[in-house]
Simulated assay, not measured.
Amino acid sequence: MRTILIPAVAGGAALAVALAGCSTAAPAAEAPGPADAVTLTSCGLDLTVSAPPERAVTLEQGATELLLALGLGDRMAGTAYLTDAVAPEYADAYAAVPVLADQYPTAEQLREAAPDFVYSMRASAFAADAVGERAELADLGVPAYLSANDCEDPALLPDEAGFDTLFAEITDLAAVFGVEDRGAELVAEQQAVLDEVAAAAPDADLDVAWIYSTINGAPIVAGNAGLPQTLTELAGAGNAFDDLDAQWTETSWDAIAQRDPDVLVLADLSRGLAGDSAADKEATLRADAVTAELSAVRADRLVAIPATEMDPSVRSIDALATLSGALVEFAGADA
Rank of each mutant, 00 (worst) to 15 (best):
A222P: 00
P219N: 07
L227P: 01
G217S: 03
E196N: 08
I220S: 06
A209G: 05
G226A: 04
D205V: 08
I215F: 14
D205P: 07
I220L: 08
A209I: 05
I220Q: 06
P219V: 09
N216Y: 13
T214N: 09
L227N: 02
A201C: 06
N224L: 08
A204C: 07
L206I: 09
N224Y: 07
V221W: 00
A209D: 01
P219Y: 04
W210H: 10
P228E: 08
D203E: 15
I220E: 05
I220W: 03
A199I: 04
G217V: 03
Q191N: 05
D203V: 12
W210Q: 03
I215Q: 15
P202Y: 08
P228L: 11
A209T: 06
I215V: 15
G217T: 09
I215D: 15
Q229W: 01
Y212L: 15
N224D: 10
I220H: 02
G223W: 01
A225V: 12
Q191E: 13
A209V: 07
L227C: 02
N224E: 11
D205G: 05
G226V: 07
D195Y: 10
A201E: 05
A225Y: 03
D205W: 08
N216V: 14
L206P: 00
W210Y: 13
E196D: 14
P228H: 05
W210F: 14
I220T: 12
N216L: 15
A218I: 09
A200Y: 08
A201H: 06
I220R: 06
V208A: 02
D205M: 11
A222W: 01
A204T: 10
P219L: 05
I215P: 13
G223N: 03
N224F: 08
A218N: 14
I220F: 09
S213H: 13
L194W: 11
T214M: 10
P202W: 07
D195Q: 14
D203A: 14
T214C: 10
A201W: 05
A209F: 03
L194C: 11
N216I: 12
A201N: 03
A204H: 05
D207A: 14
Y212D: 14
A201V: 04
A204E: 11
D205I: 07
L206W: 00
A222D: 02
P202E: 12
L206D: 00
A192K: 11
A222Q: 00
P228A: 11
V197N: 04
N224S: 14
D205T: 08
I211S: 01
A204I: 07
W210S: 02
A198C: 15
A200G: 06
A204Q: 03
D195A: 15
D207Y: 09
A201I: 07
A222R: 00
W210K: 04
A218R: 14
A192W: 09
P228W: 02
P228N: 11
Y212W: 15
P202L: 08
Y212H: 14
A198Y: 12
L227D: 01
A200E: 12
P219K: 07
A200T: 06
S213P: 09
N216G: 15
L206H: 02
P228F: 07
G223A: 04
